[in-house]
Structure formats: structure tokens, C-alpha cells
Amino acid sequence: MDKIYLENVSYIYGEGTPFEQTALDGVSIGIRAGCITGIIGHTGSGKSTMMQLLNGLAAPTSGKVLLDGYDVNTTFEDVFDAWKSLPEYQNLSKSAAKKAIRTEIRRRRKELCFRVGLVMQYPEYQLFEETVYRDIAFGPQNMGLSEEEIRARVLEAAAFTGVDTDWLEKSPFDLSGGQKRRVALAGVIAMRPEVLVLDEPAAGLDPRGRDYIFDGIKRYQRETGSTVLIVSHSMEDMARYSDDVIVMANAKVLMHGPCEEVFSRIRELSDIGLDIPQITRVMTMLKEQGFPVSEEIYTVDAAVEELYRLLVKGKGGNAT
């Protein structure tokens, strides 16, 4: 079954104002459990909105967001329907019942945040504690875990994201940009979310910093079997790390499928103005010059194979 399912979801910003803008337009899509799914598209294509819907930070204007088949947005009626036949509930006074339902909604919302971990763009801005340890522990603490459990989770998250144990007692503000980013990522991973959602996790990092972050995400996904969603501009990064890819354009899902399948439609991707990998451009140009190469290549390794075959086979042909 799909881990997450969006059922005809629309989201409209500033409804009824002159600034009204449709960010998602009747999107229906399922996200496979235990995979890394990349979401690519332009700024304003709706991809960042989509991730805020997944953990209830925003509620869809219409449609449903399902996690394991259950709607992530709890309404007053939902709780009331579930509770109305319970004797404990019926014994409550009207105002106490209302209050209890509100508390329950809040509890469920909070629980959702722990199940669907959200790493925002430039997450290092969220660091605030005196030590790295305490910052990573912030999420687990809000979950109400015991001290030992918190400790175990912080150490585990630090190990996943490559946060040095030496840093744990340092101030997060003394770390470099790339290191802070890893601490921020650890702060979300420490909640052990079933679904990890990341918005441009490598934005602004140098190649080494980028590899650290992506390797950490990959390790977490592989060892815990979590579902991961990564919003990104970079087809190069997504080609390297994701299993499935969703392409968003104009508030709609344009393509969705396994990485190879989506990226093989590179022409269409290029047509909607996405930044296609440099290697694909090389292959396309060769093809245009009349060489029998595939254009559907988006990794350096594949390009090497393709050209190696051609160049070596060509050599063999000449010899005979």
C-alpha cells in the first residue's frame, strides 16, 4: 500500500484576496513506502506546498492527505464521531467535552509531526539551544520520552547524519554552515519519523557538504525502512539518490514513476524548462550530430558505458 496518498488535493493561497494563487490543483498521487522519492519542479510549481500538507502545517483547501490510509487532518467532527458512543465521553459536561476534543486534536497534530518529520529549507536557522546535544534532543523531549531514550535517540541521529560526538557539547553557533545543517537534520531524525520530508536539503552547500547530507539521508532510509521525500531543483542529485521521481509543473503532477522512467523523458523535462543534467546535454548534442547514442542518459556512469561501447566497438569494427 502507498505510505502517503494525496486524494484530489488542492491548495489555494490567499483565497478571496487579489493575491489568490493556486499552489496545488487537484493533485492525486501515491508515494511508495520505504523509498526515496524526489520531487522536482520550478520555484512556484507547488512542490514546497505539497510538503507542508504532509505533516499538517497546512491543511488542503480541498481533498485529503492520507497517511497509512488515515486522513492526517483531524476535524472536530472526526473526534466527536469516534467518541460519542463512549460512556466516558457521555459523562462529560458540554464544555468539558469540547475541551477534551480540542486537546485530542492538538495531540493528534503533534503526533503527526513526530511521524512525518519535516526538514525545511536552510534548516540551520532553527538551531537555538546552548549545545548541539540539547538542540537535537528538542524534538524527542517534546515527544515526552525518558532521559535514557532521548540520549539513545540523539546519539543515533548524530551517527546517521555524521555529527561528531565531539560537537555534542559545543554551541551549535560555533559550527560551520555545513555542520549546522547536519545538526538540524539530526534534530528531525532524532524523532525517528516514519516519513522524512526535506526541502532542498543541499541548497548552498559545497560538494562535500552535499554528499554528507545526502549520505546521511540515504543511511537513515536504508536502516530504518522509512519513506523519504526530497524536494529539489537538482536533477543531478535526484538521479543519484532517489528511487521514484515526481515532476511538478503549474500546480499539477506532470510525471511520476521510477527514476529511470521519468528521466528517460528528458526531452519533455527540458521543454518545461527544468535544469537537465549537463551529461544529458552532451549526449543530446552528439545525437544531433548524427552519432547513434541514446539521449536518455542522465548519469555520468551511463554515459561512460554508452560511449565506451561505441568507441571500443567502433575500434573492433575497423579491425575486422
Partner: peptide, 20 residues
């Protein structure tokens, strides 16, 4: 030193490494 080369340069390097 934690950098890399552009993809097209990586392609040429890799082909050369394989003896092309």
C-alpha cells in the same frame, strides 16, 4: 580537497581511465 569536476569533464576522465 572536497571539490569535483563538471560532469562532462568526469565523463572524459572516466573514458580515458578505461583506456579510450
Amino acid at each position: 580537497v572536497g571539490l569535483e569536476v563538471p560532469q562532462c569533464a568526469a565523463l572524459i576522465h572516466e573514458l580515458r581511465r578505461r583506456g579510450v
